[in-house]
Design a protein around this nucleic acid. Structure first.
Lengths: 346, 346
DNA sequence: ACACTCCCGGACAACGTTACTCATGCGTAA
DNA sequence: TTACGCATGAGTAACGTTGTCCGGGAGTGT
């Protein structure tokens, strides 16, 4: 039985060089597909690498060159929408030969800062930040240390690239769908945002704005009704309770996120009502949860996988050419109609 | 406007040493709380660190000493139970001053190998592997390179520590609960396992075994009925269809995981039946999903957060003393009764 | 006053990899 | 033939941090 203490010494580039009877420089060149290695040299070195089971030490690489790894920050590991983005990003990055590491779920600026700093400390070649809540100042700081791509945030900066959903269009999809069904009292539950910078940049604020614009476009100005809570299940629960207590309660609730819709459905059930019989409900994000049969929530699909793929390509491009001008992509969402929306009662 | 190319040079230990007018060795000692630094020295150095905003470079640290970071591997990022474990682990590790990095969701041995190798390449001081499916050989290999803790796997090894749920007891909780309600035809949906090593080590196999043992203990041998599919929503759906097509269908289904129960509920609904009216259903893991009101699934709680905390403590202990004998913890699960279980009809 | 022990701080050589610089040999144009 | 360019490989100094070793000064007992 092997003693727990018997840590095996790692195979290094020097071992490979000796085994193949070449210089370490030559091995390094082969590893990086760098110029100056003949086909015979390549073959000899690759053979040695395979036979010794050598793996480059990422930490050591980080001291001089690249680590060939990219960090992904998720705000909340429990939200399946973010998992879709991650899948898309991982798919592209692994094919490109990059390792992927993630920061643990972080809510709040302090945790986000910790995660981003961790990634910089570990010499990541690039980072993908999914739906960050940090201040613009911090994001620019991160981008000044490492190529960064933001996913799901609307601000444009010359320091980083971004991929975002067209939340204005998404909100309009929902409002038009409900209005087409005959609803007029369509209420919205938003995530309260006070910071002036974020009102422009955060998707939740843009969704609320899209809701207002779409309501006006349908001449439903007088029915605009927003409950300001948060993008959590509890936020949905409380928001729905507020809305149901109105003198003229809404016949449809547009929750800003699927998780919010979960809370809404719970509040509706506890009030002895049902969806869509008494109140139509929609979410946003088309998470796995929305698709689950007993729930079957009408929702807006952002194409998370595609967003992740695009983010990965952007970060790879920027790693290859850090001075390339920043690019900002906006993807069109689609509406997925399920069984929580129907024509209003009566 | 700052050019995207203007990467700011990182503050190093040398900068701190010059600023504080001491040696780099002294700064290093303060950073590591190592012996040989007077209180005045400590104060001087800490002041310099704070004023310069210095952060140790984890990659560089990895070349000589520790990186003060731990890697966590999750098999599936979408399963909220794993998120609970992660939360518990992160909580303990961050208080202890360790950074946490995760591997992206990985299903299958090949992906697990990639993630574990990535963590070793990045000089993690330790790794926590949650519900790994890899062969014992690979796990021993990982443990020979880095302190490792396995969560949710029953095999004992002297190379790594482990934290597991008492799945035998958990299965018994479910069977006894259903039997106490008056059920006799209690069926189980398991994740099919063929590899002989894993039949001993994997929680799914142990749960199935616990189901059989508990059924026998209640003198219900003749009603033992198992559908072998997989621990996925689809597995639950197909498994339930199989069971419902029996000449004498069960009055209760014990799904091996909450995600399986989701599929079961879907199949039951599509068959025009209801839970618990026609068939009682239980899950396992007590995920957030089980607690959600419209579902309200009776489930077994493994105390994921506590498991994560324990795993983190074990890995920290082993980092501190790599030759400490391996320890294996087993935690007692509890049953959370909700609204998908009731007495059988008739 | 002397030897001895501590305590504290610094010098220095790793750790594994890469970027730069340089040496060699060969083919080719003047 | 000579000089030059080019392809190929090797030598070497970093990168930022830590652990080991060493020296000097202060304190202590005789």
């Amino acid at each position: 039985m092997r003693k727990p203490t018997a840590r095996t010494r790692r195979i290094t580039i020097v071992d490979v060089a000796q085994y193949a009877e070449v210089s370490t420089t030559a091995v390094s060149k082969v590893l990086r597909n760098a110029y100056g290695a003949s086909p015979e040299m390549q073959a000899k070195v690759r053979k040695a690498i395979a036979e010794l089971g050598y793996r480059p030490h990422a930490a050591a690489r980080g001291m001089r060159g690249q680590t060939y790894s990219v960090g992904v920050m998720l705000p909340n590991i429990r939200n399946p929408f973010f998992a879709d983005i991650l899948d898309g990003a991982t798919e592209v990055l692994e094919v490109a030969g990059y390792q992927v590491l993630m920061g643990p779920g972080c809510n709040g600026e302090a945790e986000e800062a910790r995660v981003t700093e961790t990634m910089i400390d570990h010499s990541m070649d690039g980072v993908i930040l999914i739906a960050p809540v940090s201040s613009r100042r911090h994001l620019e700081h991160v981008a000044s240390s490492v190529p960064a791509v933001l996913v799901g945030r609307h601000g444009r900066s010359s320091s980083y690239d971004s991929v975002a959903d067209d939340d204005l269009a998404g909100a309009a999809l929902v409002v038009n769908h409900l209005a087409d069904l005959g609803h007029r009292r369509i209420a919205h539950i938003e995530h309260l945002e006070t910071d002036p910078d974020r009102i422009v940049e955060m998707p939740n604020a843009v969704r609320a704005d899209g809701y207002r614009q779409a309501m006006r476009a349908r001449r439903l100005d007088e029915y605009i009704d927003i409950a300001s809570t948060s993008y959590t299940q509890e936020g949905g629960y409380l928001g729905a309770q507020q809305l149901l207590a109105r003198p003229h309660p809404p016949t449809a609730i547009f929750a800003g996120a699927d998780i919010v819709a979960m809370g809404v459905l719970q509040a509706i059930a506890e009030a002895g009502l049902s969806a869509p019989g008494d109140i139509a409900v929609t979410g946003y994000d088309n998470t796995m949860f929305a698709g689950f049969a007993p729930v079957s929530l009408t929702s807006v699909d952002q194409g998370g996988r595609q967003m992740g793929r695009n983010a990965a390509r952007l970060v790879l491009d920027r790693i290859a050419d850090p001075r390339r001008p920043a690019s900002h992509m906006k993807l069109a969402p689609t509406l997925v109609v399920r069984r929580t929306t129907a024509a209003p009662p009566g």
